[in-house]
Design a protein around this nucleic acid. Sequence first.
DNA 1: CGCCGACTTGACATTAATCAAATGTAGTGG
DNA 2: CCACTACATTTGATTAATGTCAAGTCGGCG
Lengths: 226, 226
Amino acid sequence: MHQLCLPMGLEENDMDRLDQIIGRRRKVPRDTHLYRMNDPFTNLYAVRLGHFKTCQVNAGGEQQITGFQMTGELLGMDAISTDRHHCDAIALEDSEVCEIPFHRLEELFGTMPTLLRHFHRMMSQEITREQSVMLLLGNMRAEQRFAAFLVNLASRYTTRGYSSTNFQLRMSREDIGNYLGLTIESISRLLSRFKKEGLLKVNNREIELLDMPTLKAMAAGTEVCP
Amino acid sequence: MHQLCLPMGLEENDMDRLDQIIGRRRKVPRDTHLYRMNDPFTNLYAVRLGHFKTCQVNAGGEQQITGFQMTGELLGMDAISTDRHHCDAIALEDSEVCEIPFHRLEELFGTMPTLLRHFHRMMSQEITREQSVMLLLGNMRAEQRFAAFLVNLASRYTTRGYSSTNFQLRMSREDIGNYLGLTIESISRLLSRFKKEGLLKVNNREIELLDMPTLKAMAAGTEVCP
DNA sequence: CGCCGACTTGACATTAATCAAATGTAGTGG
DNA sequence: CCACTACATTTGATTAATGTCAAGTCGGCG
């Protein structure tokens, strides 16, 4: 957790000061909200355990999942601009977060440039992550999107020390479809097709990736035409 | 410019200190790069004059325009995470920017909490802007996307003191299509249809919006079905 | 005037959505 | 343990939206 989240690279002394402001841990049961759109912003949240999704809704009631967050990732940075949350954050399984009171974090910034720098990197990373999703949604075809999704999960599980080829999907097909701008039926068909083509095994939400090179090539848009 | 960009709400004293680190102005002729993907990151850029587009390219050569920037907007925040730019920034017309050396900006953060807070708001705003685009690309149909695009431009021109109904598109149909995940032909057809339906007038790149309420309703997804 | 690039328009093809069952899975209570 | 239900997923048939391809038209500029 400390390798992924805010404290990265801090000296022990600074680490203690950070630990002191980090608020209580909060359990978030599956399918419940960590926060809702328009809630006033007081805390950032670091995921300690479990998985979340963040989603936007517009006036017409259309919903878009804008991301899936796992252990060590930070939630709530989109709320800084207006002091209100811009999306809902919902636990995909029983989860746990640390509350990080943002005003107290700001107080530390003045004397802890390393912390501040790391915070900026995390916000910037969120911006580039979203740009990749824009590329995916704007230019890729269904099979590319789905391949990119799987490759992205694999790489994030690797970072966390888990298997990059065997993992559980924590989200429903519907969530995946919504995130990728596709329907649940399309996701289901893609899974079946990838299975038939020997790219992966799938059993309910259990996934085993069998052909990472091809999946990566599909995701990058460099796959040779079949 | 000062109302939109970093200095917002600074005291005169602080404003001077900020002005001192702001680097030279740089002219960027139409169709030339302000920076390219993978260029090392040294400066943020504040647009003083003109318009830019930022675009991503993946390994397969697919390109996605991730945003259009106008006067007072900040470019380059996605480079902080890795010290390299993640996208190309290209001038849509002859333009001018201020260079903001990021390391010197960081030096000010320690003693200018107001500046820091404003910087955080700008990064956060970029995150929420991108989330809106994700909603657009993931869930909206072509006419909604295009309406949302026009309404967004209108509101940004309003903020800058220009007409919200009469303005020039600085980007080609192709750029618009790429940004919205549509083809140039689709954009052309949508323009023709909106014109026929009396929502706008169009003459080359000159736009006059005639029915903002309907356009807004379309963008929000609350338009009554025709 | 004539060329070029940007844009428009039309005909047709394709992708993924929609609609409709069928099937599978997990949980519940007998 | 087994029916029974509710919900998630898969699969098939069809349709609708948008992409692709192919002419054209327009406007600016040498």
